[in-house]
Design a protein around this nucleic acid. Structure first.
Length: 901
RNA sequence: GGGCGGAUAGCUCAGUUGGUUAGAGCAUCGCGUUGACAUCGCGAAGGCCGUAGGUUCGAGUCCUAUUCCGCCCACCA
């Protein structure tokens, strides 16, 4: 028999790429039930995830690595459970973000997009997409993602673009899309409108400027007003005071003079004004402030725009025309000071609106844009979650979701960009009407004139993202894929995308398909650096997942991200975090290597009746317990805890204990060796299956080796039902307990405790590792148990088995012996020359007082109402513990007495 | 202003439906390399589970209040 020769350390570099290619070329990523193929079974319910499409702006970051790991885990789990699992990959054109990248590249060449024109610019955009789109898919593969690449989509693909057209058309026909001048958020640098969600507010130090609004026809009467943005004075069209404010009531209805421009504007009364704030009088700039805009509408005020698209003062700004907004602020204020209109300045913390992209200050401006009416769309989306048809994990995000949808504002969907889906609206130059169709029109739908021109703007990126779960499956076509795979099952993404993306998908899904787009939402947290700071280029704290994978392997990265993660919670990551995972993977590798190489010496079974040892039964009980726990945790999305439990089991129970025992049992040869090998293989197999969704590469590699190794042994039958690859192997089926397990675990635990205690003494007394020492052990009614495990104890505690005596009771302890008591078990270690009476007394006294305090505690507990009120099993457990402590106490007392003599 | 999350070992965090001795990794300390593994082994030390009340036989876990940190939403000039 040729033993398989495995390297001493797992070599991920030579493994990962090979395995991925093998999986992919064997079609393992495709769901095993394809609606486009013969033999399709529509009754099998699929499990579907649409990937949150990464932006093609650059390369993947750790956050991407996290969600890919999580989704891959979910998909692999379902696939192993025999569910047709489809993971749809793809990427997003990411309008503003990507256009900005390409524009930056242009600027470096000294060019602007206007200079090269729309056509050339788009050509460059697509070239960018080809380059970065490819990098991203390579990286997704590198992470081991088992997505079905036949389904890969890009938001600007033909099919998805058609979906956008149909969606826009439907909303327009229903009156849910409208166009008009509104106060919107304007990004002066990018020269485009952005939605409310794309504006972030940051607290920054600034000033509150107090000045005089002189009353018309008076030289000394004025209303004092405060503002944070003096330049907006140029656009003021009223001054408002509270109707009940005695200071200013008398001015209502009169006129005041706009500083420097000398326009006359009315003084109005509105209860919106807060009498306590500032001066209690409010200047109204409907053209540049959302609240003022509302007041302006209510009072029918004139709306004046004072800024052009680059935020320079326009013709309405009189002498300040052409000045930048901040330049104008300074100049106007100085001019007002010269004109004796300034009262004072005061330091003040402002809430500055900044662009999510680029961070420049956003200006509220009046502009004609396209909007989606949200209220009617929001209602069914609320209902879908309220009714439980869609579940959000963690649950506390449902409140956030409700709150947002209940207060939703109309969505500005037009962007003055070139990269994206062009708005499917044509304006007629002849009659002025607009034409909205699903396919490009050649003439005006109203007057028939061919003189029509398409709206130059594009749609907000999130408009197409909102269609993603169904547009990627063929919608609006009723394709077999769409019919079978839609609605999808799981929407896994970051909580920061709840509004941007998740809520909009639900609204659009319900509106366009009449169904919820998915029934579960799993929201993960943000990856932060080791200090809890957001990772970003500006913080200079970005960790590149590729570097980690190069150094420690994909599995190590995946395991770290998955095991350290709790739903909805942010996670702090540094490179060091990955080391324990790398070590664990190496542990799995080496334990497996040991098992695989040991198989060569196994001889055929000579009896059919298996004879299991206590350790055999114990590890089997424990692994079954693990399978049950992992199942429970997976069902409740606690993947991190599941991974942690597998880790603990594998290392602390299987490797540290069972494999050590197995070495002895294997040495016995014959049936004992056969049974041991069988147990080793079956437990390892279960572990590999449970670990596969976490660390797919190493487990697949080991499993393949294990399978091959088994073929040449008497144990080959174990592998008879195995599939050709672990990725499609069956998920371990949880089994019910049969009733005998607890006693078996308790016995083994007693054994472990005895061994640990001896090891402790050895360490305390500085007995050289490897040096065999004698021991006397008595265990009362457990004596037989210990007799059977004599070899195990002497090997694991390094006892001299010739001088290791097990009996039902012990003679009085001698002076040169160290005493140990664990319940009914008592151990003496004769350690010539190492036992110091004083030390021994101290040690035993310490152990005694600990056992006594435990016993006292339990006696008190059991004499109270606990014994009457608590469930009897719980009480019984405590009683047993007490009995154990009492025995320990008696034995230690005895030992102490002997010492005193 | 409204809402949410967190506070557990030196550090980073786990902790089923409440079950009575609170766990891991890293860091620290001691001992140790002749075949699974130094990416390791055997040990040790380290925590009134933010604070104050309450419910309960029993609270890290549930309730109330409170302090501090973080986040989200709204945006009073």
């Amino acid at each position: 028999m040729a033993a398989i020769d495995l390297p001493k350390a797992y070599d991920f570099k030579s493994t990962e790429g090979r395995i991925y290619t093998w999986w992919e070329s064997n079609g393992f990523f495709k769901p095993d039930n394809d609606p486009n193929k013969p033999g399709f079974d529509p009754s099998r319910k699929p499990y579907v995830i649409s990937i949150p499409p990464p932006n093609i702006t650059g390369e993947l970051h750790l956050g991407s690595a996290l969600f890919i790991s999580l989704e891959d885990l979910m998909i692999r789990y379902q696939r192993m459970k025999g569910v047709p699992a489809l993971w749809v990959p793809g990427s997003d054109h990411a309008g503003i973000a990507t256009q900005l990248q390409v524009e930056k590249a242009l600027w470096r060449e000294g060019l602007s997009r206007e200079q090269i024109g729309r056509e050339e610019f788009l050509r460059r955009m697509w070239a960018w997409k080809e380059k970065y789109g490819g990098i991203i898919t390579d990286q997704i593969r590198r992470l081991g993602a088992s997505c079905d690449w036949r389904h890969e989509r890009f938001t600007l693909d033909e099919g998805l673009s058609q979906a956008v057209r149909v969606a826009f058309f439907n909303l327009y026909e229903k009156g849910l899309i409208y166009r008009g001048p509104r106060l919107i958020n304007w990004s002066p640098g990018l020269k485009t409108a952005v939605s409310d969600l794309e504006v972030e507010y940051s607290e920054e130090p600034g000033k509150l400027y107090f000045f005089k609004y002189m009353l018309s026809g008076s030289t000394d009467e004025f209303i004092p007003v405060a503002t944070t943005r003096p330049e907006t004075i140029l656009g003021d069209t009223a001054v408002a005071v509270h109707p009940d404010d005695e200071r200013y009531q008398k001015y209502v209805g009169r006129k005041v003079i706009v500083p420097m421009l000398r326009r006359e504007i009315p003084v109005i009364a509105d209860a919106y004004v807060d009498r306590e704030f500032g001066t209690g009088a409010l200047k109204i700039t409907p053209g540049h402030d959302p609240n003022d805009y509302q007041i302006g509408i209510t009072h029918g005020l004139e709306i004046i725009s004072i800024l052009d698209t680059s935020a320079h003062i326009n013709e309405n700004g009189g002498p300040y025309r052409g000045q930048d907004r901040f330049e104008c602020r300074k100049n106007l204020w100085e001019d007002m000071r010269a004109a004796a209109l300034v009262i004072k300045e005061q330091d003040y913390v402002l809430s500055i609106p900044r662009s999510q992209r680029g961070g420049e200050i956003i200006e509220p401006m009046i502009s004609t844009q396209w909007f989606v009416r949200m209220e009617t769309l929001a209602q069914p989306a609320l209902e879908a979650v309220r009714s439980g048809r869609i579940r959000i994990v963690p649950e506390y995000f449902t409140k956030v979701y409700y709150n947002w949808l209940e207060n939703i504002q109309d969505w500005c969907i037009s962007r003055q960009l070139w990269w994206g889906h062009r708005i499917p609206v044509w304006y007629c130059k002849a009659c002025g009407e607009l034409t909205v169709t699903m396919t490009d029109p050649t003439q005006c739908s109203h007057c028939g004139s061919p003189n029509i021109e398409q709206d130059p703007d594009v749609l907000d990126t999130w408009f197409s993202s909102g269609l993603w779960p169904f547009s990627t499956l063929g919608w609006p076509e009723e394709t077999p894929d769409y019919r079978y795979f839609y609605p999808t099952t799981m929407m896994e993404t970051g909580y920061d995308l709840l509004f941007f993306w998740v809520a909009r998908m639900i609204m659009f899904g319900l509106e366009f398909t009449g169904e919820i787009p998915f029934n579960q939402i799993y929201l993960h947290g943000i990856i932060r650096d080791e200090h809890g700071k957001k990772m970003g280029k500006s913080n200079n704290n970005v960790i590149d997942p590729i570097i980690i994978m190069d150094k420690m392997g994909t599995d190590a990265l995946r395991f770290s991200l998955l095991v350290g993660n709790t739903p909805g919670k942010d996670m702090n990551v540094n490179t060091k975090l990955v080391e324990p995972s790398r070590n664990f993977i190496n542990k799995v590798w080496n334990a497996s290597r040991f098992i695989i190489t040991s198989l060569a010496q196994v001889e055929p079974q000579t009896t059919t009746e298996p004879e299991w040892t206590l350790p055999d039964s114990w590890i089997w009980v424990r692994v079954q317990e693990l399978v049950r726990n992992v199942e429970r945790l997976f069902q409740t999305y606690q993947y991190g805890e599941a991974g942690h439990q597998i880790y603990e089991f594998f290392w602390s129970e299987f490797a540290d204990w069972y494999i050590e025992v197995a070495k002895l049992q294997m040495a016995e040869g014959g049936n004992r060796a056969y049974n041991t090998a069988r147990t080793l293989v079956r437990v390892l197999d279960l572990c590999l299956r449970l670990l596969h969704p976490f660390i797919p590469f190493v487990t697949e590699e080991i499993w393949g080796n294990l399978r091959t190794a088994l073929m040449d042994t008497p144990l080959a039958e174990i592998a008879t039902g195995w599939s050709e690859a672990l990725i499609i192997a069956s998920w371990p089926e949880p089994r019910q307990k049969e009733g005998w397990e607890d006693g078996c675990v308790a016995d083994f635990n007693l054994l472990q405790e005895a061994i640990r205690s001896i090891r402790n003494i050895r360490a305390e007394k500085n007995v050289k590792p490897g040096k065999r020492i004698p021991a006397l052990l008595a265990a009362g009614e457990k004596t037989e148990l210990f007799r059977k495990q004599k070899n195990v104890i002497s090997a694991l505690a390094q006892l001299d088995s010739d001088k290791f005596v097990i009996s039902t009771s012990l003679p009085p302890k001698q002076e040169n012996q160290v005493g140990i008591a664990i319940g009914a078990v008592e151990i003496y270690l004769p350690l010539e020359g190492l036992v110091d009476t004083t030390e021994e007394r101290e040690r035993i006294t310490k152990a005694l007082s600990e056992a006594e305090s435990q016993a006292t505690r339990l006696e008190k507990l059991l004499s109270g109402s606990f014994a009457e009120r608590a469930p009897s099993e719980i009480v019984q457990k405590e009683k047993e513990k007490l009995a154990g402590y009492l025995e320990t106490v008696a034995k230690l007392k005895n030992q102490l007495e002997l010492l005193e003599q």
